[in-house]
Design a binder for these strands. Structure first.
Lengths: 168, 168
DNA sequence: CAATTGATTCAGTACGTACTGAATATTCAA
DNA sequence: TTGAATATTCAGTACGTACTGAATCAATTG
């Protein structure tokens, strides 16, 4: 096996680990890494071979990645089978991931905490007063996360870099 | 069951969901929510009852939370059993979580990507050149995340708020 | 020191998610 | 329209993580 292949294997392996810790499943992240690292679009068969996974798994992982908006299906002239490619710009990629995580994690949590807060407002005991304050703080934190998301969404990459440099 | 209890249940339920999506396991996050919302420290038995989980599970969840540095064990004068409490300041809490996630996710990924990059430097083909560029971009993104962590670490809460307001 | 209370450990198990591969559907060329 | 190539679906299963509860360990008290 050549070194290029080894490097690719190492990349998909680790990007898979990283993905798993980020709520994207391991295989999905590996498929993404593969497409991301490859200049030309890949077909299902190539992905199967590279990652040693089943046809069904490739199909489902690609569908899920397309749902996330990270991968797109494309036709290649003269080819019968479908090819797949991914967003190649890392910042764009990061924004899509952030958006999805906001939708799945931040938004429902904000709703739930607001709901709890409303419930606590109908009670008047010393312990509920304390809890209310704590939950309010928690909500504020999550809302800050939400605002941070909106901030990132509007920024371009050089701007983020510049901002960070100011603080280091 | 009183409304206060219902509110607490709702809180632990949802904070548990949120935690699960953040790589903290559900029960751990629920235990944390309970301690966070309670003014007085709680003992293992109280946690068992509130969350309807086994003694062993409480013990393991608390240990893990203590490993993360979010929960501390404390003695109460005249009491034989141990009591547990958690960091009550949300910003402090957030910093601890961020630190842990950086250690578990960002740092290993940076190492892996650097490693891959070194491997790719020993090859000289058109496809490896493309891959090299992509991996370098990915690494830069993750390193930006790392820098963001260091930025947050140094800031206090009011400062973060102020910064965000500037951008909205 | 025994007895009692409480904490910890861990083998066994439950449970949920991810994966396979065969059956089915779809597309396209002849 | 048929057959070949490709894609999708999904029932069954593998696999890993989380949980239980009994056994064990530790601490405290009389």
């Amino acid at each position: 096996m050549d070194t290029y292949q080894q490097a690719k294997d190492k990349l998909t392996l680790h990007w898979g680990e990283m993905g798993a810790k980020w709520g994207i499943n391991r295989t999905m992240a590996q498929v993404h890494a593969l497409l991301f690292a490859s200049e030309k679009p890949l077909c299902a068969e190539e992905i199967m071979d590279e990652l040693q996974i089943s046809r069904g798994n490739v199909s489902m992982s690609l569908r899920e990645l397309m749902n996330w908006g990270i991968v797109t299906k494309m036709h290649i002239k003269g080819e019968r089978k479908e090819f797949y490619t991914t967003e190649k710009d890392v910042w764009q990629f990061f924004k899509i991931i952030s958006q999805e995580r906001k939708k799945r994690e931040i938004d429902p949590t904000i709703n739930a905490l607001r709901d709890v807060l409303r419930d606590l407002d109908t009670i008047d005991t010393p312990e509920s007063a304390y809890t209310r304050r704590q939950v309010a703080d928690l909500l504020e934190l999550v809302e800050t996360g939400d605002k941070l998301y909106h901030m990132i969404e509007k920024m371009d990459y050089p701007r983020v870099m510049k901002l960070i440099k100011q603080f280091l």
